[in-house]
């Protein structure tokens, strides 16, 4: 019964009309331009206005992109959770495209976090990696979304595979609050500068740099989700056209 519902909903055309398509195209270009501008302004503030930190030195400036990247990973994972729940409830390709694009963005942002964090730690701690609760849970979360992306890449694109991936997308989100509260619950080496008990950023330009970083990475995450979701919908449309072409008895090339 559910399979029939999926088939019916899947049969709906995934391409928007020409008018909505051009409006969406303009919206995407405007969003991409705003993202690029926000990233450039953030880089300028971090490089030229935010002061060097007293004990760690210039390597502390990794923080202005490391923390927003971690936040953007949460955003990607949340989008994956919503898309996956939507796919399980409705079964449409649009929800599936949202879930997949969210997982891909979570992986990219997670890679940024897992690369920039150890580089900072090499200077601040003297070691690149420790099995600190936040580091461990963050890596676990990235691995969950890597598993999601690999599952989608190397298995078929049938309803069963999409449902399995959607279940992973829903369950994978359970780790996000654990990452956030791991520092408070289990201690560890990871700094908690801006969370409860932290000393905060001591200079207004440090705060400005971080706020701009959050803004830039929010826009970047939305842009990347949009870009990847659009591509997924195009892949779905291509699959429909290939099916039609097969029924008409043409190769298409």
């Amino acid at each position: 019964m559910q399979g029939q519902a999926v088939q019916t909903l899947d049969a709906k055309p995934v391409t928007p009309s020409a008018a909505t398509g051009s409006a969406a195209g303009f919206g995407f270009i405007a969003l991409a331009a705003a993202t690029a501008l926000a990233l450039v302004v953030t880089l300028y503030v971090v490089a030229f206005r935010a002061p060097v930190e007293a004990t760690m030195g210039i390597v502390q400036k990794i923080f202005y992109f490391h923390v927003p990247a971690a936040y953007a990973m949460y955003l990607g994972a949340a989008v994956c959770f919503v898309g996956s729940a939507g796919y399980l409830a409705r079964g449409t390709r649009r929800w599936d495209a949202v879930a997949k694009s969210g997982a891909e963005v979570a992986v990219v942002m997670g890679m940024m976090v897992l690369i920039s964090g150890p580089l900072w730690a090499m200077k601040a701690w003297g070691v690149a990696w420790t099995w600190d609760p936040r580091l461990t849970t963050s890596m676990l979360s990235v691995l969950i979304y890597v598993a999601y992306v690999l599952l989608r890449a190397f298995t078929g694109d049938g309803d069963a595979e999409r449902k399995f991936a959607a279940a992973l997308g829903v369950l994978g989100a359970a780790n996000l609050p654990i990452i956030h509260y791991s520092v408070q619950k289990w201690g560890g080496n990871h700094p908690k500068v801006i969370s409860n008990g932290g000393g905060g950023l001591q200079h207004p330009d440090m705060k400005l740099g971080l706020m701009l970083g959050f803004l830039a990475f929010t826009l970047l995450a939305i842009t990347l989700v949009w870009l990847r979701a659009k591509m997924e919908l195009s892949v779905s449309k291509l699959a429909e056209l290939e099916q039609e072409a097969l029924e008409e008895g043409i190769g298409g090339d």
Binding site: I62, F65, M112, I115, S116, G126
Partner: peptide, 15 residues
Amino acid sequence: LQSGERLLVISYMAI
């Protein structure tokens, strides 16, 4: 032992 400048540049390049 580690140059902060070099680590910062590597980090930003990777991002």
